[in-house]
Amino acid sequence: MSRLPVTLLAAWLLIALAGQVLPLTPNEIDLEQLFAPPFSAARPLGGDELGRSLLDRLFTGAGISLLVAGVSVSVSATIGTALGLLAGYLGGAVDRVVSRLIEIFLAFPGLLLAIALAAFLGPGIGNVVLALSVMGWVGYARLARNQVLSLRHRDHVLAAVALGRGPVAIMRLHLLPLLLAPLLVEASYGVASAVIAEAGLSFLGLGVQPPQASWGSMIREGVRYLLVAPHLVLAPGIALSLVVLAANRLGDGLRDRLDSRLSRTYA
């Protein structure tokens, strides 16, 4: 697996953490620095339409996207995996209910539903996380259920049943560890989706509210001055593209590495 995605994601993580530690002033308006070009002394990445530092806002935006991606993927993965496990292992009515729920959610375009939900709940970072979590669990649930359906008849699971292990213990000790690899791949794609969805919602004005910076809101504000100061869009746009590309490439790499069938093919 190429090191580039890992390096890029590590850089994202570092920048996001640095944004919390460094004495940044992302919201400090300086009329003398309106549309300052990149590489100027006071504004290394340039100034925006209010003279705020693009670099500082980029760092803060990295933190927001990491927070949204981290929380929404964690919540989605936890809920989705739990529901998928239950549906796949218990079967019967539980499986029918969860499967219908999954089908209903899959019937709607995910981002559109997230937009509707964010619009209904009102703008704000908390509601964006909630909207993305509500939409995100489906993929994990479907994956976990399908995996469990094929794993539940494995010898070690049947042996555990024969030895009198309860369903919770079987799911936790004998099924979940085997699900982790595909779930990890799904989660890396989920990070990419969450980052892009947060940016999309903020671009539409449903995410982070001014003056707080997120990459999506920076692009939204910058689009109006595309003819005058393209760097306002380019800086957050490139950052966003790199993170999404890196997360997707990481997912591809993990899938290739963790999938035993693929490993054998390429061995």
Partner: peptide, 13 residues
């Protein structure tokens, strides 16, 4: 209006 919002942000600061 984006320009009025810009002015508002300056007032705020």
């Amino acid at each position: 209006d984006p320009f009025r919002l810009r002015v508002a942000a300056v007032f705020q600061a």
